[in-house]
């Protein structure tokens, strides 16, 4: 089955470090929002980014995908400085409130995904047959086989979210960054969603960084935690996080952290 997200062993070996954030400082013409952030995401990591509202999680994600430029510090993608980086099809980004769609936009599920497959030169050169197959494949992957002709606006929030994941997967990315992907959907849908991410990470080695308030739902899938509050309070292995001072501080803040037993 041609379902590998990463094509060759060569590519696997080239660099193990997918994203590196080095001494990043950022402000939006005002107070510092991010201070001295150092973060490294390795291939096949599943990182959860947590922190209170307004702590700079969205800002950091936007810096990592080049939508914002830090005032100081550097970002590297696949070992390359972000300014020089060109292989954007390797990076999938799902923004916060991505499913707050314009309610009248007449676009089918197939069109959502296909249009993304022309985004870059590498993608445009693929044959049309490849695109059709790709759409079918990624829809199957997210459990929406046969939904090609449905209008986006007729889907539930959870289904729309899965279409956006399918779109993100279609370009065969190597890393996926998601910003609070499950706000506004019910608990069961959230759980299914994180199980899907877990599967993509586990079965295909997809590197994932997700900003989330549902720590309790992701913690069975992740291996890394980053805890942000202007500074990076904690960054490291998930198992050690629960013993750390940062974790207790978060609990003291009344952060919603339901732990799953496993």
């Amino acid at each position: 089955m041609a379902s590998k997200l990463i094509e060759t062993q060569d590519e696997l070996d080239k660099s193990k470090e997918v994203i590196k954030v080095e001494s990043v400082y950022f402000s939006y013409d005002g107070p510092l929002i991010l201070e001295d952030i150092n973060l490294s995401i390795q291939r096949a990591d599943f990182l959860a980014m947590i922190g209170p509202n307004g702590s700079g999680k969205t800002t950091l994600l936007k810096i990592m995908v080049g939508l914002l430029k830090p005032q100081a510090g550097q970002v590297f993608l696949f070992g390359q400085g972000i300014e020089e980086f060109e292989d954007w099809y390797k990076v999938a980004y799902i923004q916060q409130n991505a499913t707050h769609l314009e309610s009248k936009f007449p676009i089918t599920v197939e069109e959502v995904i296909t249009s993304s497959l022309y985004a870059s030169r590498q993608m445009k050169d693929r044959p049309t047959g490849w695109r059709k197959e790709r759409v079918e494949h990624v829809l199957r992957l997210v459990g929406l086989a046969g939904y090609q002709k449905r209008l986006m606006t007729t889907l539930s929030g959870g289904q729309q979210q899965r279409v956006l994941i399918a779109r993100a997967l279609a370009a065969e990315p190597e890393v996926m960054l998601l910003d609070e992907p499950t706000t506004g959907v019910d608990h069961q849908t959230q759980e299914n969603f994180y199980d899907l991410l877990g599967k993509l990470n586990h079965d295909y080695g997809l590197t994932i960084a997700v900003v989330t308030h549902d720590y309790g739902l992701v913690n069975k899938h992740i291996n890394q935690v980053a805890c942000l509050n202007r500074k990076l309070i904690y960054h490291g292995r998930h198992e050690e996080f629960c013993q750390s001072a940062a974790f207790k501080e978060l609990l003291a803040d009344g952060h919603h952290l339901v732990m799953h037993q496993h």
Binding site: V65, G66, L67, E86, W88, Y89, V91, Y93, I94, Q95, A98, F105, I107, E111, V112, T114, S115, S116, L117, Y118, A119, S120, A171
Partner: peptide, 19 residues
């Protein structure tokens, strides 16, 4: 056509994707 559709539907993601 495709790039215009992508950015009209979802500008920020299109930007990251290299449109």
């Amino acid at each position: 056509y495709h790039q215009l559709l992508y950015m009209t539907f979802d500008r920020e993601t299109a930007l990251v994707a290299g449109v």
